[in-house]
């Protein structure tokens, strides 16, 4: 079905272009904020559930919170690393030439 849809014009709109830093930045901002909170909350919830079912009152939520926070930090760290990687890739002149060819 490759011929059925002709992709003829290049992306002219700035916001939708490939390396638009504003769009990428806003994406990263929305991502990092929630990911840290989500992982921490999920860890705490799992700890709370463990407390509820196994009757280990204070310990489950404590350990869960610590593990959740660790998971959140890890996710944010990984996202930040990919962000740096993207920037290096965008500055790479060989990649720009590739884009021009395609």
């Amino acid at each position: 079905m490759s011929g059925s849809f002709r992709l003829s014009i290049p992306c002219r709109n700035k916001l939708m272009s490939k390396g638009n830093s504003f769009r990428q930045g806003i994406g990263i901002a929305f991502r990092l904020g929630t990911e840290l909170v989500a992982a921490t909350m999920l860890g705490a919830l799992m700890g709370y559930a463990a407390d509820y079912f196994f009757d280990t009152k204070p310990w489950g939520i404590l350990v869960g919170l610590i593990f959740g926070a660790a998971a959140g930090c890890l996710t944010v760290y990984r996202t930040a690393m990919t962000l740096q990687f993207d920037e290096e890739e965008n500055n790479d002149p060989s990649r720009k030439e590739e884009e021009k060819d395609s």
């Binding site: 990911e35 992982a39 799992m46 593990f67 959140g72």
Partner: peptide
């Protein structure tokens, strides 16, 4: 930690 960060993905996506 990896299991929590894996399960946090759909959670954060939805929230």
């Amino acid at each position: 930690i990896e299991i929590i960060s894996m399960l946090a993905r759909p959670f954060s996506l939805a929230v």
